[in-house]
Design a protein around this nucleic acid. Structure first.
Lengths: 308, 308
DNA sequence: CCAGCATATACTTGCTGTGAGTATAAGGGA
DNA sequence: TCCCTTATACTCACAGCAAGTATATGCTGG
C-alpha cells in the first residue's frame, strides 16, 4: 500500500430544460450535486457516475461528457494525509422520468446565477449590485496596475461600458464574483463580519463552480454540436426548440433566422402532425433526424444568437 | 485504508515547433510520454506534472491545459486489485532550453501520424494504404448496416469521396485506424499472424491516443485563442508565425488573408527591426502583444485555413 | 360572427467576414 | 542587369447571417 494513493470522487452536473427554464439536478438542501466515490465495482468512470446519480436521484443518464478533473487541497482526509480528486461530468437528460428519493429535485440555474439570464434584457442585479461591488473590489488595492487589470476583467466578463454581453463567459464571471468575495462560499470560514453578498443561492464545497463550468461548456457546445436534442422530447415544435436554446444561452434568438438555420441544416424532419396547444396558429411537430449525428461531427451546428 | 483507493498518473503531451515541424517531447525509445504518479508532496496536479516533466526531460513547462482523465481497465496493479487513473495534459513550449537527460528527445508528430500532414497535398498513405485497408475493414462484417456505418465514418474522417479534409478530426481518425487494427498497439498481445499495419511509429500503452487527443485539441484551439504564441520565440516574422500555424494544422494557409487577420486583430506589434535571414526582401520583425490576452477571451482569434 | 390577438411561416435586405486572386516593393545572387 | 525570392498592399466576389417585414392560420372574447 502506497501513501500516494488517492480517493476519486465522481460529480455530476445534470441538466434538463422544462417550460423554458434550464434546471440542475440537486440533492440535499438544493445545494449539492449528485456524487460518489469511484469504486472497484465500477466498470468505468462513466458507469460509476451513472450508478451514483441513479442511486441518489432515480434518474438514468443519457448523454454524458467529462468536464474537468481537479485535486481539491482543502479536502484532505481528516484522519490521515490523503488526497481527494474530483472528476466532474456534464449530463443532459429530460425532466420527466421517475420520481427519485425525496431529497432530490430540479432547480433553475438562474437561482445560483441570477446575473446569467439575459432573456428579458440585462438583469437589474448586474448594474445595480454587481457593477458597484466590482468597482469597490477593483479599487480595493493600492497598485494602480492591478486596479486597472481587475476592472478590465470585470468589464469584459460582464459587458460593462457598452461592451457586448458574451454568454459563454459564465466561468470567468463566477471567478470574478468569487475573488471579489461576493458569494457565500468565497467567504466561508472567514473571520469578521460577513460582507455584503450578491443575492444568489449557494452550494456546498465547489459545486457552484462546477455548475458554472458546465454552463459555459454547454453554451459553447450548442453552437457547433446538435446536443440540444438530448434535452428535447421526441416530438416538439420549432418554437419549443428555440425556447430551449434560449434557456440555455440565457438570451433571445431571432426567430426567422433560427428556423432557417435549423431547417437548412436538415437537423429535423416533420412528423406530419401539428399541435394547437401552443395557442395561435397550430405549429407543425418535428422530430430530430438522428442520421445527421455522424455528419455533424464535421459541419457543426450553428445557432444564431442575437446581438444586443 | 480503503480498497477503493486508486493510483493517479499524470501524463504530459509537450509540444514545440521548430523549423516548421511540430514536435512532441518523448522519453525512452521515442515511444513514451513524460509521466509520473501524483504524490503527496505535489501542491497541485499541474505542479506535479511540471515536476515529472522537468525531472525526466529537463524542460520547464509554460502553458499547460488539461486534456482528459480516464481509468484504464487494462492497467490494474498486478499484485492486488487496484485502479489506475490517468490525467493527461497538453503543454506548449519552445524547443531550445536546456539539454535534458540523454533518453529524451523531440519527435515530429507526423512520425506517429503520417496521414495527418496535408501541407503538400493529401499524403500518399491516405489513398494508397488507408483507403483500401479501411474498405477491407468495413466489408469485414456481415451486417450491411454496420458496413455502411463503418464506411461512412471513414469517409467523413478522412475526406474520401470528394469530401473535404477536416484537420480537427485527428482523434476520430486514430480511433478508426485503431479499430481497424492498422496500428501496432491495437493488435498487441493478439495471437496469430500480425496483420498488415499502416507504416507509422507506435507508442507504449495508450500514449499515441493521448497525442491524437492533444493534436485535435490544439488544432481546434488555435482558431479561437492566441495560443500559437506560446510556441514562438519572442521576436518573429509573420511568415514564421504562419509556418508554425501550418505545422500544427497540417495544412496551408492563404498568406494575404493570414496577414490581414493577424494585423486587424492587433495580435502583434512591430519591433522596428527587420531580418534578411529569410532570403528575399527583408521581413519586419514582430512581437506578441501580451495586452490582448485578456481581450481575446472574448473576441477569439480566427485563423484562415485554406481549403483544398 | 367578427375583431383582435397570438403564433407560425415566408420573403427581403444589407452588412460583414473571408476566401481567393493580383499587383507592387525590396533585397540577394548569378 | 536580370531574375529569383520573399514581403507587403490592394481588390473582388461570394456566402453567411443578423435583422426587418409581410402573410397565413387558428383561437377567444364580445
Amino acid at each position: 500500500m502506497n501513501a500516494d494513493d488517492v480517493k476519486v470522487d465522481l460529480i455530476a452536473f445534470v441538466v434538463a430544460v422544462n417550460d423554458s427554464e434550464p434546471c440542475v439536478l440537486t440533492i440535499g438542501q438544493a445545494d449539492t450535486l449528485p456524487s460518489g466515490p469511484f469504486a472497484l465495482e465500477h466498470r468505468s468512470l462513466q458507469s460509476g457516475l451513472r450508478g451514483w446519480v441513479e442511486q441518489q436521484t432515480g434518474h438514468r443518464l443519457g448523454y454524458i461528457e467529462q468536464l474537468y478533473t481537479f485535486a481539491d487541497r482543502d479536502r484532505i482526509g481528516a484522519e490521515r494525509q490523503q488526497r481527494v480528486i474530483s472528476i466532474s461530468y456534464l449530463a443532459l437528460t429530460r425532466k420527466e422520468q421517475a420520481a427519485g428519493p425525496p431529497k432530490c429535485g430540479w432547480q433553475s440555474w438562474y437561482e445560483y446565477f441570477p446575473w446569467e439570464d439575459h432573456r428579458s434584457g440585462t438583469p437589474p442585479v448586474v448594474l445595480d449590485v454587481l457593477r458597484p461591488r466590482l468597482i469597490e473590489w477593483a479599487n480595493g488595492v493600492r497598485d494602480a496596475a492591478t486596479r486597472r487589470e481587475r476592472w478590465q476583467r470585470a468589464t469584459i466578463a460582464f459587458g460593462f461600458d457598452d461592451r457586448l454581453w458574451n454568454e459563454e463567459l459564465t466561468l470567468q464571471r463566477y471567478e470574478l464574483v468569487y475573488e471579489a468575495g461576493l458569494v457565500q462560499e468565497a467567504v466561508r470560514g472567514r473571520d469578521g463580519a460577513p460582507p455584503p453578498l450578491v443575492p444568489s443561492k449557494s452550494m456546498v464545497a465547489d459545486h457552484r463552480r462546477i455548475v458554472a463550468t458546465g454552463i459555459a461548456r454547454l453554451r459553447s457546445k450548442i453552437k457547433y454540436r446538435p446536443v440540444v436534442f438530448e434535452l428535447m422530447p421526441t416530438v416538439f415544435t420549432l418554437l419549443q426548440l428555440q425556447r430551449t436554446v434560449e434557456a440555455l444561452a440565457g438570451r433571445l434568438i431571432h426567430k426567422p433566422n433560427f428556423r432557417r438555420l435549423i431547417e437548412q441544416q436538415e437537423l429535423v424532419e416533420e412528423t406530419g402532425e401539428a399541435t394547437t396547444e401552443t395557442g395561435g396558429r397550430p405549429a407543425k411537430l418535428f422530430r430530430f433526424r438522428h442520421a445527421v449525428l455522424d455528419d455533424r461531427l464535421i459541419a457543426g451546428t450553428k445557432l444564431p444568437l442575437a446581438r444586443g
